[in-house]
Design a protein around this nucleic acid. Structure first.
Lengths: 233, 233
DNA sequence: GGGAATTAAAAGTACTACTTTTATGTCACA
DNA sequence: TGTGACATAAAAGTAGTACTTTTAATTCCC
């Protein structure tokens, strides 16, 4: 019906997780294990494993004699890539994109500054290559190809920062960039100014100019925020 | 043996999660379900639920005919509060504190800037109150009381930013601050300069001066980084 | 009317039987 | 001798049932 997964577990998890993050069950809603088992036509064992996972994401809480209670948004593990994916697939995707972009605007400049200090020659090379790829695909409705380079570029920056917490945001950034490209009208080519900035960031990192890398990335971030109307125009 | 939890599940989860994040099972290690069941003296059902949760944290991967394989650090959900707690309790806690502090240094200044724009009067009041609490407890070996105000202060800032992703870092910040206080010698009073900065941040937020709130928070962050020798002295 | 005892509903745990996947080893054929 | 198809078995996945434990809610007694 929703996602034809390879296992019963995955299927039930995907369906329930999506429904909960989409707000179909308001916080406080109580689900009963065997009711769910019946609904999905699986054994209680499968449902219990799913509930345990949802519980570890703090989407629900399971209490004896009460049932499985849906928790308020505030307690969700919003950094769980799975949860992020569910929410981006749901209704409040715009809001979600906004808050993730604000997060990016805080993290990426600092990450770029660190990358300038820590990037390996290989990473510098990779960065330049992706930036050039962006230039090459920035005209003529080649948005899909452009996106690939864009995602790769930001991933390298986050990895090269040498900070594990930053590195793990690579998936988030990928989701945001993909979401943005696919959500927008997809007709217009990317902003030339942004493309140039990426090339310059690669340059700054190569030259070990941390302050410049940070500042340039901050400008990219401002552009991204403006695009989503987070900032005044 | 390790953590006497209230349920079998929690106990096994805590023990295994801690062991894996501590690096006791190198990536690639294969665990068998019924071997674990035997070792912990619980049923396979319980083990399977635990494995499912560990799988959702990307600590392990379960494949048929192979077993439960421990995954490399790079794929762990390092933003999962549970994972963070396990890692802070383990051996590489210093490294962990460092990378989390770098994350803070990126996020909190931006959050403070947003807080200056979005904080409710109630939040402004709360902020001032916590800052004053910090001042009051900053002398005379009252580190535990000081910590409470410090944590509360940063939580309010993150909440007041109005950004959900920032707000959810409250727990992380709490862990870091607690870890730092308890790890250090606990003899010396907090840096007076830091205390003053907190008061000034509260002031800036109250006066809706976003730029100042951001800059002051950046100074707090620099202090925190220096304290952990992340920056050169 | 309030508090203690009872009840029952739902999750937690255990165990067992069966199914499915799949790594690995075997054997035949080129 | 090497290669590919096939058989085997090992381990996870699924199901179903029986039992335990917790605890909200009801009842009943003082």
């Amino acid at each position: 019906m929703t996602t034809p997964a390879q296992g019963l577990h995955s299927h039930v998890l995907a369906t329930l997780g999506l429904a909960i993050t989409a707000g179909e069950y308001p916080p406080g809603t109580v689900l009963r294990t065997d009711e769910l088992a019946q609904r999905f036509d699986v054994s209680r064992t499968v449902v219990r494993e799913v509930v345990r996972v949802l519980e570890s994401m703090h989407l629900v809480e399971s209490r004896r004699r009460v049932g499985v209670t849906v928790l308020p948004t505030a307690s969700w593990n919003v950094y769980d890539p799975q949860v992020i994916r569910w929410r981006l697939a749901g209704a409040d995707r715009p809001r979600q994109l906004r808050s993730l972009t604000v997060l990016r605007s805080a993290v990426e400049p600092v990450a770029a500054g660190l990358a300038a200090l820590n990037a390996t020659p290989e990473q510098c090379r990779e960065l330049t290559e992706q930036a050039l790829g962006m230039v090459a695909t920035s005209r003529g409705r080649r948005l899909e190809e452009y996106l690939v380079h864009d995602v790769a570029f930001h991933r390298v920056v986050l990895d090269a920062s040498g900070n594990e917490m930053f590195a793990r945001l690579g998936d988030v950034v990928a989701e945001v960039l993909t979401g943005r490209t696919h959500h927008h009208v997809m007709f217009e080519d990317p902003d030339p100014a942004a493309v140039t900035l990426h090339v310059q960031v690669a340059e700054a990192v190569r030259e070990r100019d941390a302050a410049r890398a940070e500042e340039l990335t901050r400008q990219i971030a401002v552009g991204a925020l403006r695009e989503l109307d987070v900032l005044a125009p």
